[in-house]
């Protein structure tokens, strides 16, 4: 094909050819196989480029979200698999712990406390480009329960990536631990109305924040909004029963 052919392709696709030129073009597609083949590839490339650049931001958002969900999924998945290799003596301990917990639950003699319900797992944050050191600091501080350091690290990360739901969520938990409830709840409210995977978890932690403040009425109201599909539904129901 020569330059003129490609200019014609573009004209045909953008519908800027005159009627006669259009008819000629379509006739040539039928009579000239090489012309037709080149046009098919040209058209494919046009759509490809459109998708590649025009929807680039949407694609990146999708990949990021997928990455977060995948990481969270495989973290729990490997935990379940590891359960199979549980040493027998651990069963004895687990059984005693379960018995002990049962005893306390049965003897419902005190108000439920935040510590009974706030069992955050170790976190593993997604590293993004230049922020690797800050991410590691946030992760390690959070996992070693050094919430003051975690809070500072998350602040730094959020300065670079202010809408990152993962950072917002764990900063909120760190703030509940530090009794900085207002800040924590502000973040959880944002997450609750957002589209991230943390939007249901955020509701559960809002309830836990109220629980830690011993604002039981508000806690009950929030717990009642947690629907059956939510991961924390069972925990929420358990807490509701204790608060009744």
């Amino acid at each position: 094909m020569n330059d003129q052919d490609y200019i014609l392709f573009e004209g045909y696709i953008s519908k800027t050819l005159a009627v006669e030129e259009r008819v000629d073009f379509e006739n040539r597609l039928i009579s000239d196989e090489a012309f037709n083949q080149a046009f098919i590839t040209y058209k494919d490339l046009n759509v490809f480029l459109e998708q590649k650049f025009e929807n680039e931001n949407a694609s990146i958002a999708f990949k990021d979200n997928l990455d977060t969900i995948s990481k969270a999924y495989f973290k729990t998945e490997s935990k379940t698999t590891k359960g199979v290799h549980f040493a027998p003596w651990k069963y004895a301990i687990a059984a005693s712990v379960a018995l002990l917990m049962g005893y306390f639950l049965f003897n419902n003699f005190s108000d439920p406390s935040y510590n009974d319900f706030s069992n955050h797992d170790s976190i593993s944050l997604i590293e993004r480009g230049t922020q690797v050191t800050a991410v590691k600091t946030a992760e390690t501080s959070f996992n070693t329960k050094d919430y003051i350091a975690a809070d500072i690290a998350f602040d730094a990360l959020l300065q670079i990536d202010s809408t990152n739901a993962e950072y917002q969520f764990y900063k909120a938990i760190a703030n509940i631990e530090l009794d900085k409830f207002e800040e924590a709840e502000g973040l959880l409210h944002i997450l609750k109305s957002g589209q991230s995977i943390f939007n249901q978890k955020a509701v559960w932690y809002l309830a836990l924040s109220k629980l830690k403040q011993k604002d039981y009425e508000a806690c009950i109201v929030i717990l009642n909004t947690i629907t059956e599909e939510a991961e924390d539904y069972k925990q929420a129901q358990k807490l509701l029963k204790k608060l009744d």
Partner: peptide
Amino acid sequence: RKKKSLCIGKLTELVQ
């Protein structure tokens, strides 16, 4: 406009 069609044209040739 012209350059756009020639660049996609170049890409078409590379692919073919």
